[in-house]
Design a protein around this nucleic acid. Structure first.
Length: 252
DNA sequence: ATGGCTTCATAGTGAAGA
């Protein structure tokens, strides 16, 4: 089963890229973040035309998540149960016995920001929920934009990022907390090219210079076999790309 | 280089992203 995640930075702007990518790659499941689309405007018809169903939780301007799939979604959950959050950042559903959790983890802005505290408390709630979710659904994958570069190897210039969000020790510790639940960073289960990233700043010709971070991840439970994981850089080369590029895993 | 893009928003001295 091919599953994937992609922060599209506006589904409205990126719909043609998504449709092209689905046609070329034919994943069973594609998790989207930053759809920035209210549910009433979700492009369900265009996606259905392409052979994909969708479940989604969106809002105007910011955030917004969706899961596109060939199969019908079952047991859909929106948000982290019991965690009050205005921001639409989580949607989960089951496909063919595989629990798929789509997350858009907060950015945090800066270490002294209230948004950073929100990010850390959000990660605490996520871990507590996933611990329960794993009992209910041992075959589980968590895909999305984590806004965390787990190791210095996931950062083009670790020195330049010291003191910044995405690389701080509390965030990395929270990421390891998810791993301690038995969730494996599928990308690191396999030999990968050096300097593999999933996001590049729009500025400074960062993509051309490969000044990126690996912050989009697919975590896989131990009960779920994983035979491959890769970052597909191709969509980042298109005209008017998202600043993130898809991450894809093969699970069974 | 404290942003140099990009988006959605509104018409801001923009906000936010990462």
């Amino acid at each position: 089963m091919k599953i994937a995640t992609w922060n599209v930075n506006s589904l409205k702007v990126r719909l043609s890229h998504v449709l092209e990518w689905l046609a070329a790659n034919q994943p069973e499941v594609l998790c989207l973040q930053e759809t920035k689309t209210e549910d009433a405007n979700f492009p369900a018809a265009e996606l259905q035309q392409a052979g994909y169903r969708a479940v989604f939780s969106g809002q105007k301007t910011y955030n917004g998540v969706a899961i596109l799939s060939k199969l019908e979604a079952q047991d859909v959950v929106i948000g982290i149960p019991g965690f009050a959050d205005e921001q639409k950042r989580v949607i989960a559903a089951t496909f063919d016995g595989v629990r798929v959790v789509c997350v858009y983890i907060p950015n945090g802005q800066s270490l002294d920001s209230d948004k950073y505290q929100y990010k850390l408390s959000w990660l605490v709630a996520l871990q507590a929920w996933l611990k329960e979710e794993l009992v209910r659904y041992p075959r589980l994958a968590v895909l999305g934009d984590y806004n965390i570069a787990p190791e210095d190897a996931d950062v083009y210039d670790p020195q330049a990022w010291v003191g910044n969000v995405l690389v701080s020790e509390p965030e990395r510790s929270a990421f390891r907390g998810l791993q301690q639940l038995g969730l494996r960073d599928s990308f690191r289960l396999f030999e990968q090219p050096e300097k593999s990233y999933s996001w590049w700043d729009y500025r400074m010709m960062a993509f051309r210079r490969n000044m990126g971070l690996r912050i989009d991840h697919i975590l896989i439970s131990e009960a779920l076999a994983c035979s491959n994981c890769l970052i597909d850089r191709a969509p980042r080369k298109l005209e008017r790309p998202s600043d993130h590029t898809p991450v894809v895993a093969e699970v069974a």
